[in-house]
Amino acid sequence: MSDSIAGAAGLLLGRRTYEIFTATWPYADDTDPVVAAMNTMPKYVASRTLTHLEWANSTLLGADVAAEVIGIKDRADGEVLVLGSGEFLRTLIEHDLVDEYRLLVFPLLLGGGKKLFDDGTTRRPLALVDTTASTSGVLINTYRRADG
């Protein structure tokens, strides 16, 4: 995952995730390549309430988020990632703007939690294109759109 973040062309973030990240990443050690990437890459933030963004290279998306994300994807020279940002991700899914899913499965039973996909989400067949197990047992499963 560190390689994905370090090599990304930008981040798409919802307001809550942006606020969590901006409280930590700008103050982290920039000698770490992931920290340096997070702090220098373009960040695009979907929010109905924020009016000013403090974190370097952050841009507030306008009211037509779907159109803006299409433009960002067209201009980006590489992957644009969504980290966290569950509510924003559901908007992207609704507008069919997600090309690839990297779903991490942690070896932990919680017994509850938030759903990633809402009831009523349009059916979209996916194909598993890669799976990797970390040394701690986390599975990183990569899915892309499948025909059908």
Results as ranks from 00 to 15, higher is better:
residue 48 R to L: 07
residue 115 K to Y: 06
residue 2 S to N: 15
residue 58 S to L: 02
residue 135 T to S: 14
residue 66 A to H: 09
residue 18 Y to D: 11
residue 147 D to Y: 00
residue 69 V to A: 02
residue 108 L to S: 08
residue 107 P to H: 04
residue 4 S to D: 15
residue 21 F to S: 01
residue 5 I to Q: 05
residue 44 Y to V: 03
residue 135 T to Q: 13
residue 135 T to R: 14
residue 97 L to W: 12
residue 139 L to K: 06
residue 96 D to I: 01
residue 141 N to W: 02
residue 67 A to I: 01
residue 52 H to A: 12
residue 127 A to W: 00
residue 76 A to L: 06
residue 72 I to N: 07
residue 58 S to A: 12
residue 112 G to R: 09
residue 65 V to L: 05
residue 146 A to N: 04
residue 87 E to V: 11
residue 67 A to S: 13
residue 72 I to A: 03
residue 106 F to G: 03
residue 65 V to C: 03
residue 115 K to D: 12
residue 122 T to H: 15
residue 26 P to F: 08
residue 62 G to W: 07
residue 36 A to V: 00
residue 35 V to Q: 05
residue 58 S to C: 03
residue 106 F to I: 08
residue 75 R to S: 15
residue 2 S to R: 15
residue 94 E to N: 11
residue 18 Y to C: 09
residue 17 T to W: 06
residue 129 V to N: 00
residue 60 L to T: 07
residue 93 I to V: 14
residue 108 L to H: 11
residue 50 L to S: 07
residue 114 K to V: 09
residue 136 S to A: 14
residue 7 G to Y: 01
residue 77 D to M: 05
residue 107 P to L: 02
residue 48 R to N: 11
residue 115 K to R: 15
residue 7 G to A: 11
residue 64 D to A: 06
residue 99 D to S: 09
residue 2 S to D: 15
residue 27 Y to V: 00
residue 49 T to Q: 13
residue 110 L to W: 06
residue 129 V to W: 00
residue 47 S to Q: 06
residue 4 S to N: 14
residue 113 G to E: 08
residue 36 A to F: 04
residue 45 V to P: 07
residue 34 V to T: 10
residue 94 E to R: 14
residue 28 A to H: 09
residue 107 P to I: 01
residue 91 T to Q: 14
residue 14 G to D: 11
residue 135 T to V: 14
residue 107 P to K: 02
residue 147 D to W: 00
residue 51 T to P: 04
residue 70 I to D: 10
residue 11 L to W: 05
residue 86 G to V: 11
residue 103 L to S: 04
residue 85 S to P: 09
residue 132 T to C: 07
residue 82 V to T: 06
residue 23 A to E: 14
residue 143 Y to R: 01
residue 63 A to K: 13
residue 61 L to A: 02
residue 109 L to V: 15
residue 104 L to D: 07
residue 43 K to S: 00
residue 131 T to K: 03
residue 71 G to S: 10
residue 84 G to C: 02
residue 123 R to H: 15
residue 68 E to Y: 05
residue 105 V to K: 10
residue 4 S to M: 14
residue 143 Y to G: 01
residue 36 A to H: 12
residue 31 T to K: 14
residue 71 G to W: 01
residue 102 R to M: 10
